[in-house]
Each structure stands twice: as structure tokens, then as C-alpha cells.
């Protein structure tokens, strides 16, 4: 488990570094995927197999694919440092009348003939953002270092096999079988019993939240907002209708 953790640790660092340094959005998404997968490894090493599988299913499976689809729908070139509209230091490229990017400038010939440097795919670091996030990291690290000594290592997990509960009282086999506190930590049964015995209301509220989110997403991404007052027909406006 310790090997799984350290491999995941390194891979997560690499993935997040990829995410924040890569200029191209698809490469950054790849870095995010790597970080998510490595987080699943961290969850596995923390005795949370159900969360690890959910992580892969929801984050790496569903969210990443959604991001990829929207990246294909939209223009990924508007990121900084690409020399296209939206580049840093060229805020005037947006036509104030229409709010749309002005005509693309023709690239200089020297730019095209210049040898691509190994750092050409990376974003230039922004000093203020670096300062803020580094300050946050220093604060977090200080808080973590000063945690009480109880956080130096994880305690042992309850085990149904030794027949002794946490207080050291012996139990019969039937008692052990029916004691939810002796379920394997992080197992599907323990997590689901926690959901449905401990927090059923939150579970139902989340289902409402997702329902509302689905409705909202469909409404927002629709092309025609027919019959809804106050919304404009985007397709007609842009001349496609």
C-alpha cells in the first residue's frame, strides 16, 4: 500500500503540474485525468476502495469526457500566449461593439520560422498567481506541520476477525456478524449503510440537485429558447436560422 501511495503521490504532482503549465487545453485535460487517476490510487492506499472506484467512474470517466466534448465544441485557441484573440496584453482585440474577437492578426513570418523551443507548449507563469498560490501552500503546510502528534500515523482499523471490539470486550460470533461497526472499513456495504442509515436526507437532496442541474444544463445549452420570454433566439441573431 505504501508503494501505491508514493507512486500515486508522484503521479498526482506530475498531473497537476501538467494541468497548470500546458498551454493546449487538451494536454491540460490529460494532466487533469492523470491527477484524478492518481487520486484514485491515493484513495486505495487510504483503505477507501469504493471512493477510488467512484473517483474513476465519475471524475475520470464522466467529467473528463464532458470536458473533452466541450473542448471539441468550442475554440481552444483563445487561451493566453497563443498569439490569437485573448492573448495576454492584447485586451483590445475584443470589438467593444459586438463583444466578439476582432479579426485575427496575421502571424509574423519570423514567428512561423522560429525554431519551436521546448517550452513553447507551456504557459508563462503569472507572478501574482504564483505568489498567491505559493502563500496558500506555505500556510497549508504550516498548518499541517503543526498538527498534533495524533496525526503522525493512522490508527489500526477495526477487524471482525479478532472478535474483540475497540473497548476490548469479547463478543460472540453472532454479535460480530450483526455489528455494523465491524464492517470492513471503506467497503461498499459500510459506505452504503452510512449513506442510507446516517444521511438519507442529504442523499435525497443531492438527487434533487442533480435533477435541477440537468434541467439547467439542457436549458442553457439549447440553441432555440422557443416560447421563453426574455431570451433571445441565438440562431436567428447569428444568421443561421
Amino acid at each position: 500500500m505504501i508503494v501505491v501511495f508514493w507512486v500515486s503521490f508522484i503521479v498526482a504532482l506530475v498531473g497537476s503540474a501538467l494541468l497548470i503549465t500546458q498551454k493546449h487545453a487538451v494536454y491540460a485535460l490529460l494532466g487533469l485525468l492523470i491527477a484524478f487517476g492518481a487520486s484514485a490510487g491515493v484513495f486505495l492506499s487510504l483503505d477507501a476502495p469504493f471512493i477510488a472506484v467512484s473517483q474513476i467512474l465519475i471524475y475520470a470517466g464522466a467529467l473528463a469526457v464532458m470536458f473533452l466534448f466541450v473542448l471539441m465544441f468550442t475554440d481552444t485557441r483563445t487561451d493566453e500566449d497563443t498569439g490569437l484573440p485573448g492573448a495576454v496584453g492584447s485586451r483590445a482585440v475584443f470589438d467593444p461593439a459586438t463583444g466578439r474577437p476582432a479579426k485575427k492578426k496575421k502571424k509574423k513570418k519570423a514567428d512561423e520560422e522560429a525554431k519551436p523551443s521546448p517550452f513553447s507548449g507551456l504557459v508563462m507563469p503569472k507572478p501574482m498567481a504564483v505568489a498567491v498560490s505559493l502563500a496558500l501552500l506555505v500556510c497549508f503546510t504550516a498548518a499541517i506541520v503543526t498538527l498534533p502528534s495524533g496525526f503522525n500515523r493512522f490508527g489500526p482499523l477495526p477487524s471482525a476477525y479478532d472478535g474483540i471490539n475497540f473497548e476490548g470486550v469479547e463478543r460472540s460470533a453472532d454479535q460480530i456478524k450483526s455489528d455494523p461497526n465491524l464492517l470492513p472499513f471503506g467497503s461498499t456495504e459500510a459506505v452504503s449503510r452510512t449513506i442510507f442509515e446516517g444521511f438519507p436526507l442529504a442523499f435525497e437532496v443531492v438527487s434533487l440537485l442533480i435533477f435541477a442541474a440537468v434541467l439547467g444544463a439542457v436549458l442553457l445549452a439549447r440553441r432555440h429558447l422557443v416560447g421563453i420570454p426574455g431570451t433571445q433566439d441565438v440562431a436567428k441573431e447569428s444568421g443561421h436560422a
Partner: peptide, 23 residues
Amino acid sequence: KVVLFLAAFLFCCGVYGVLSRRH
């Protein structure tokens, strides 16, 4: 503490990304 540091590092990477990107 090591795991918490990893979480803090990932969080700060996210903060940096939110602050520095415009896409």
C-alpha cells in the same frame, strides 16, 4: 501529514490555475 500535504499541493495548483488562466 504527507497525504494532507499532497491535498494542499493539489489545491494550490488549482488556485494557481483559476487565477492564471483565462480560458
